[in-house]
Amino acid sequence: MANPAAQTALGPMIVVAADQYESVPLLHDPWAAQLLPATGRFVAALTRWSPVRSALKSATDRKISGGWASFLCRKRYIDDRLREDIAKGVDAVVILGAGYDTRAFRLPELAGIPLCEVDLPSNTARKAAALHRTFGRIPPAVTLLPVDFETDDLAEELQCAGFGPQRRTFYVWEAVTQYLTEPAVRQTLAYLAQAEPGSRLAFTFVRDDFLAGWHTYGADGARRQFVVKRGLWRFGLQPDDVAPLLAEYGWREVDQVGPAEYADRYLRPAGRDAAVSEIERAVYAERIS
Results as ranks from 00 to 15, higher is better:
Q238Y: 09
L144R: 10
T188C: 09
D209V: 14
A128T: 03
H132Y: 15
L10H: 02
F210V: 05
V254D: 06
T102D: 05
A155H: 08
I113Q: 04
E84A: 11
A104L: 08
P197L: 11
A32G: 09
A274F: 09
P114V: 04
L211W: 09
L107V: 07
Y100Q: 03
Q7E: 07
L131K: 00
E157Y: 01
Q194R: 13
Q238C: 14
A155N: 04
K127S: 08
L56C: 14
L201D: 01
Q194M: 10
S58P: 00
Q178L: 14
G231I: 12
L211Y: 09
K127Q: 09
G136E: 15
K88G: 01
D241I: 07
T134C: 15
K57W: 13
A59V: 07
A45Q: 06
R223C: 11
Y217N: 11
Q238K: 15
S199Q: 04
E253D: 14
S54I: 06
V43N: 05
E84S: 10
W68Q: 03
P239Q: 13
L120F: 14
T39G: 11
V142D: 04
K88F: 10
G250N: 06
Q34M: 14
L201E: 00
L192A: 05
P30H: 06
P108A: 13
E84M: 06
V118L: 08
I64W: 03
P25W: 02
Y249P: 07
S23T: 15
P139V: 04
V94D: 02
G250M: 09
R265W: 08
V43H: 02
W173K: 06
L27G: 05
T102M: 03
E157S: 14
Y266V: 08
V52T: 15
R234M: 14
E157Q: 15
E253Y: 09
T47I: 12
P269T: 07
Q178E: 14
Y77E: 05
R48N: 15
V227M: 11
P197W: 11
A38D: 14
P146W: 02
D208S: 10
R126S: 03
D209G: 13
R287T: 10
G271D: 07
L46N: 07
S289W: 11
K127A: 05
R272Y: 09
R268L: 08
Q7W: 04
L35W: 01
H28N: 07
C73N: 01
L245F: 08
I95W: 01
R268K: 12
R200Q: 07
A125V: 08
Q256D: 10
L267E: 01
L144W: 13
R268A: 02
A59I: 11
E174N: 10
P140M: 10
V254G: 04
C160P: 00
V94F: 04
V206K: 03
R48M: 15
A222I: 04
A263L: 02
M1F: 03
G99D: 05
G162C: 15
D241Y: 08
P140G: 12
V93H: 03
R76S: 04
R186I: 11
L35Q: 05
Q178S: 14
V185F: 03
S65V: 02
D101R: 00
Q194N: 11
A260Y: 06
S54H: 12
T8D: 07
A59N: 12
I95Y: 00
C160S: 15
S58Q: 13
E156P: 04
G162V: 13
Q194W: 05
R268Q: 09
G89I: 06
D208G: 08
W68D: 04
